[in-house]
Nucleic acid binder design. Structure first.
Lengths: 223, 223
DNA sequence: ACCTGAACACCGTTCAAGT
DNA sequence: ACCTGAACACCGTTCAAGT
């Protein structure tokens, strides 16, 4: 009887780096960064924790691989026939939405930003900078600024969003912050008080893209 | 004899949130994020791990308080008589250098960006945006873009720098990356190959500030 | 070559007991 | 009110032993 009830599930396919990374992404998405554990991962893969180390050197590499996998998918499609500004916005939106869908990605990008997908982002942004007619000496700086903004600020925005407890309403939260800002000391925070109202109905994504536009405007501004 | 050799050090001052945070910053600076442990912290404070919980709710709050303390000091002095652009650069430099000196700060800002010093940064940047003559409807977006860039990208740059193993020479490292970039597939990475040379002798701080300038240029550009 | 899972050396946090 | 430190419930990682 014991042999009949033991592991009735179908024979599992062999372990592989790819399967491990896929399972890690699922775990990160469902139970968050704290939930990604070698024990939990092993259970999901119907094996022991040690088995994972045959395919992956450790947790840092696993997190990096998970981030690369998700980011690569996020920037997979390239839209031909777009203006440079539109193409840059498209990459930015891809990264933003990926972090929005996988909040752990933002923290990971801030920790170790140089996987192969991030290099692909640099390349794609750089080509659009060239297409904008920026002269060669300034191309690197322009591309770097956009690249850093996209990778760094998308994560920053996601962190802001994450701070809202999952239960609470986003609109309610913004309302509360707006009220708090409006009540700040007028001597110390005159500006913040003035713009507090802008927080209501404020959209992180729109604001993020407005920042991209400002950098593009700065790049193309001739003095 | 046992009583004579026990704890000959001077009587320690009472625990306080301030002392705990100060010790945490020291630990973070000397042994890094992984070295900040309640046991290590307790030893440094000549007490048990449990004592710390009387003054601080947990590790997350401790890290936040450490970040706030360091950041507050970094933006302490305000230089009067500067142009708006100079003043914005001054704030940006303060944040950049703070993260450079305390690498753990970048990761912390990416995780939870809203302590009171970050609000002070928003206020200071916002006032300069007003001083630039930006009309009211666009002030919030302009200040947000600068604020996000400063907080997000400074951390991003620091992460790049941190990836170099402490032993290796920075110039050597950049040289190696430049060489690797120059050898990328010309079909896939034409732009990155072109700018690979710019990496040699490249200064993160200068590049970071150039990004600030681009946003300022975008803000003040009139179409 | 690849997997297993017990064991090691840690963690953050709690809590009864002290002063 | 504040501190102590043992104990709890975990971690990531290693490694002898298996197939």
């Amino acid at each position: 009887m014991a042999s009949r009830t033991r592991r009735p599930e179908r024979r599992r396919e062999p372990l592989s780096r790819e399967r491990i990374v896929r399972a890690a992404v699922e775990l990160l998405d469902t139970v968050g960064e704290a939930g990604l554990t070698f024990r939990a991962l092993a259970e999901r893969l119907a094996t022991g924790p040690g088995a994972i180390y045959w395919h992956v050197t450790g947790k840092a590499e696993l997190l990096g691989a998970a981030a690369d996998a998700v980011l690569a998918e996020a920037i997979a499609e390239e839209d031909a026939g777009a203006t440079p500004r539109e193409a840059i916005r498209a990459v930015a939106v891809g990264v933003f939405d990926a972090i929005d869908a996988h909040p752990w990605l933002g923290a990971q990008l801030a920790r170790a930003p140089s996987g192969s997908p991030t290099l692909r982002i640099f390349e794609r942004v750089g080509r659009q900078v060239q297409a904008l007619g920026v002269r060669e000496a300034r191309q690197f700086t322009a591309a770097s600024a956009l690249w850093n903004y996209i990778l760094g600020v998308a994560g920053q925005n996601a962190a802001n969003t994450r701070m809202v407890e999952p239960g609470t309403n986003r609109a309610e939260y913004l309302d509360a912050v707006a009220t708090a800002w409006a009540e700040l000391d007028p001597e110390q925070y005159p500006f913040t008080r003035t713009v507090a109202g802008r927080l209501r109905g404020h959209d992180d994504r729109v604001e993020f893209l407005a920042g991209v536009d400002l950098i593009v405007a700065g790049i193309t501004a001739h003095r």
